[in-house]
């Protein structure tokens, strides 16, 4: 590769506290029967304490691989390379599994799309939370039980003492997600990774869970890495947004900037394909084509085969992530988009 993918570092915003999570040049490659598959390709990420960063992408963007990499949950067949991967000042790259496990239980935690699969189906909810507490804290069982019920109550589960005795299948999807959130936050983690936590829920329940995650994170000062494909959810939750496409970070910006002036064509396409952005009755604006096969990524910009603006350099050179305005960076040769495009003949 001729160009370093990161010629310019994104200038830290003024008065931002020391970042909690720093990811630089993270690549993840899986060995498959059909050859290596690069799921993440030199991505960067920073997250300040208490901040909510939304990671947006469609299938194949690598957003879920990112969360697993951060949690140390990738299978051993995955090859992880990074220039920097630090959490709370600790280097995660060389971390051994027992240490990672402690970190995962206490300082980092995760909630998933399908809470049913993240909970043990044959154990009562309360017992699972008590176990999670006592795994990392040496406190007597009755005390842990009280804490567990408190945690359930904090998530707005009605009759928490009763629900603690329920098995996961006896709860609705929304209640299960609440229980999972209670378990995830029981050690007051510094980082919560939420991987599509509301995708499987109904809209009215989704609204409740989004509020809950936001309120609890604010209360406990937890930073949230919110992984989603839904730009509506992003608008609701995020302080900052990182947009992923085909394993690469294509744009990162404070949420207001991203929604008022997106600087990557893929971001524009994602927003443009939302029904809300299309006049009623007019044809919708889809992104043309499909996500490329991860084993046969196009050269240059990964998005160029689908990009309506693609020109010369897009097909040959990987665009570097460039700062367009303070805090907003785009990996597009054409950014700033509107200025470049209007200057075109």
């Amino acid at each position: 590769m001729k160009h370093s993918p990161r010629e310019t570092m994104i200038a830290p915003q003024t008065a931002r506290p020391e970042p909690l999570l720093v990811v630089r040049g993270l690549s993840v490659t899986f060995a498959t029967d059909q050859g290596p598959l690069k799921a993440l390709d030199a991505v960067d990420l920073t997250l300040a304490p208490g901040e909510t960063l939304a990671v947006v992408g469609e299938s194949g963007s690598g957003k879920s691989v990112l969360s697993l990499a951060l949690m140390g949950l990738l299978p051993p067949t995955a090859k992880i390379e990074a220039d920097a991967l630090t959490f709370d000042g600790r280097d995660l790259t060389g971390l051994r599994e027992p240490d990672f496990r402690t970190l995962r239980g206490t300082a980092m935690s995760m909630i998933f799309q399908e809470p049913a699969t993240a909970l043990n189906p044959v154990r009562r909810i309360g017992d699972q939370i008590v176990e999670a507490i006592r795994l990392h804290e040496d406190i007597p069982a009755p005390k842990a039980r009280a804490r567990a019920i408190e945690a359930l109550a904090a998530t707005g589960i009605p009759a928490p003492a009763e629900r603690a005795g329920a098995f996961p299948h006896q709860l609705s999807g929304g209640m299960r997600q609440r229980a999972l959130i209670a378990m995830a936050l029981v050690h007051r983690p510094r980082l919560l990774i939420a991987d599509e936590p509301t995708t499987a829920l109904d809209v009215t329940v989704q609204a409740q869970i989004l509020d809950l995650i936001r309120d609890l994170a604010r209360e406990t000062g937890t930073a949230t890495l919110f992984i989603t494909h839904d730009m509506g959810v992003v608008a609701e939750m995020a302080d900052r947004v990182s947009v992923f496409y085909a394993g690469r970070l294509v744009e990162t910006a404070p949420a207001p900037a991203l929604f008022s002036s997106p600087e990557h064509p893929y971001t524009v396409g994602l927003l443009g394909s939302m029904p809300q952005m299309n006049a009623r009755g007019a044809p919708m604006l889809p992104i043309r084509g499909t996500v490329p096969d991860p084993r046969l990524m196009p050269p240059g910009c990964h998005f160029h085969p689908r990009c309506p603006f693609a020109a010369g350099a897009c097909r040959t050179d990987r665009p570097a992530l460039r700062e367009i305005r303070p805090g907003q960076a785009s990996a597009c040769h054409l950014a700033p988009l509107i200025e470049t495009l209007e200057a075109r003949p």
Binding site: Q206, A207, M231
Partner: peptide
Amino acid sequence: RALISATPEPVPGSSADRMHLTGEV
């Protein structure tokens, strides 16, 4: 009304005054 209100809009800050349903079906 609740369904319309709960649908997240792709505009930051638009959810502030939405109508909330409590409980579940």
